[in-house]
Amino acid sequence: MVFNDAERRYLAGQLLGRLATVGRAGAPQVRPLGFRVNDDGTIDLGGPWVARTQRYRNVQENPRVSFVVDDMTPAEGPEAIKPGMGRGVEIRGRAEPLRVDDPPGHPSMAGNDIIRVHPTRVLSWHIDPEQPDGRSRDVGEAR
């Protein structure tokens, strides 16, 4: 299992994350994107005209990426782990450009070209009451 229950619940409640890629000349790029977590633990990133973007070209050249989903910890309620601090999940892995029939996002904004992230390492913080300070672990094989 790539994500534990707390991570999966957290990711399901979020709409936006940030993808970090590295271009041919070594220049980093970070872009906000909508996403979907698939049953197998991969992450699909979509939007309009994805295949025309620099991030898509970056992934074709260098598939190593990081995707971060985060926000501020609530001050009250069951999710109030470390109130006033940030919480989130970082997914490091290998990305592949794909064309799919069922892209993530609203149909009017989603094209069929996506970037799929295959996680190799997951880091999470302040989302799991059983491990409030966070956890990190290898979850897949880097290729």
Results as ranks from 00 to 15, higher is better:
Pro83Gly: 00
Gly84Arg: 01
Gly84Cys: 15
Met85Pro: 07
Gly86Thr: 15
Gly86Asn: 11
Arg87Leu: 11
Arg87Thr: 06
Arg87Val: 05
Arg87Asn: 08
Arg87Met: 10
Gly88Val: 04
Gly88Ile: 05
Gly88Asn: 03
Val89Arg: 01
Val89Cys: 09
Glu90Gln: 15
Glu90Trp: 01
Glu90Thr: 14
Glu90Arg: 13
Ile91Leu: 11
Ile91Cys: 11
Ile91Phe: 09
Ile91Trp: 05
Ile91Arg: 05
Arg92Lys: 15
Arg92Tyr: 07
Arg92Asn: 14
Arg92Val: 09
Arg92Met: 13
Gly93His: 00
Arg94Asn: 10
Glu96Met: 11
Glu96Val: 06
Glu96Phe: 06
Glu96Arg: 15
Glu96Gln: 15
Glu96Tyr: 09
Glu96Asp: 11
Pro97Ser: 09
Pro97His: 06
Pro97Thr: 15
Leu98Lys: 14
Leu98Glu: 14
Arg99Gln: 13
Arg99Ser: 09
Arg99Thr: 15
Arg99Ala: 08
Val100Thr: 13
Val100His: 11
Asp101Val: 07
Asp102Ile: 07
Asp102Val: 10
Asp102Cys: 07
Pro103Gln: 08
Pro104Gly: 03
Pro104Cys: 04
Pro104Tyr: 01
Gly105Met: 05
Gly105Tyr: 01
Gly105Val: 03
Gly105Ile: 03
Gly105Phe: 04
His106Met: 09
Pro107Leu: 05
Pro107Tyr: 02
Pro107Glu: 07
Met109His: 12
Ala110Ile: 04
Ala110Arg: 02
Gly111Tyr: 02
Gly111Asn: 02
Gly111Ile: 03
Asn112Ser: 13
Asn112Gly: 08
Asn112His: 14
Asp113Gln: 05
Ile114Gln: 07
Ile114Asn: 03
Ile114Met: 01
Ile115Ser: 05
Ile115Thr: 03
Arg116Asn: 09
Arg116Val: 06
His118Phe: 12
Pro119Asn: 10
Pro119Gly: 02
Thr120Gly: 04
Thr120Asp: 12
Thr120Leu: 11
Arg121Glu: 14
Val122Met: 03
Val122Thr: 06
Val122Gly: 06
Leu123Asn: 03
Leu123His: 11
Leu123Thr: 15
Leu123Gln: 09
Leu123Gly: 06
Ser124Gly: 08
Ser124Cys: 12
Ser124Asp: 06
Ser124Tyr: 02
Ser124Arg: 05
Trp125Arg: 03
His126Cys: 08
His126Ser: 07
His126Phe: 10
His126Thr: 04
Ile127Asn: 00
Ile127Leu: 12
Asp128Tyr: 09
Asp128Ile: 12
Pro129Ser: 00
Pro129Asn: 02
Glu130Cys: 04
Gln131Trp: 05
Gln131Phe: 08
Gln131Ile: 13
Pro132Asp: 14
Pro132Arg: 06
Pro132Thr: 14
Asp133Arg: 10
Asp133Ser: 13
Arg135Trp: 02
Ser136Cys: 11
Ser136Asp: 12
Ser136His: 13
Ser136Glu: 15
Arg137Val: 07
Arg137Asn: 12
Arg137Glu: 15
